[in-house]
């Protein structure tokens, strides 16, 4: 809803943090749903750079290149 239904975005940035920052410039209301008060990725959200979970790389500081694909998914697990 905060993106008017748009699900795919082209964004620039040298790191994942920069890419998100640029995304939130266009969709400021999206920010609170991805990042928490400490500017960390929310606990139940996973971010992949191509096929790599950024929790196992350098997190938001992970360097990225122009042609990489970032995927944000909700971690629905447990029961």
């Amino acid at each position: 809803m905060v993106t008017s239904g748009q699900r795919y975005f082209k964004v620039k940035g040298d790191t994942i943090a920069e890419a998100f920052h640029n995304l939130f410039e266009s969709f400021p209301q999206l920010r609170i749903h991805i990042l928490d008060e400490s500017d960390s990725i929310r606990q139940h959200i996973l971010v992949y750079a191509d096929d790599s979970d950024i929790r196992w790389t350098e997190g938001l500081s992970t360097p990225i290149t122009d042609c990489q694909e970032l995927t944000v998914i909700q971690a629905v697990s447990g029961g």
């Binding site: 929310r42 139940h44 971690a75 629905v76």
Partner: peptide, 10 residues
């Protein structure tokens, strides 16, 4: 509110 995406006012 959402356990995943946090709270908001609509």
């Amino acid at each position: 509110a959402s356990d995943i995406y946090g709270p908001a006012i609509q």
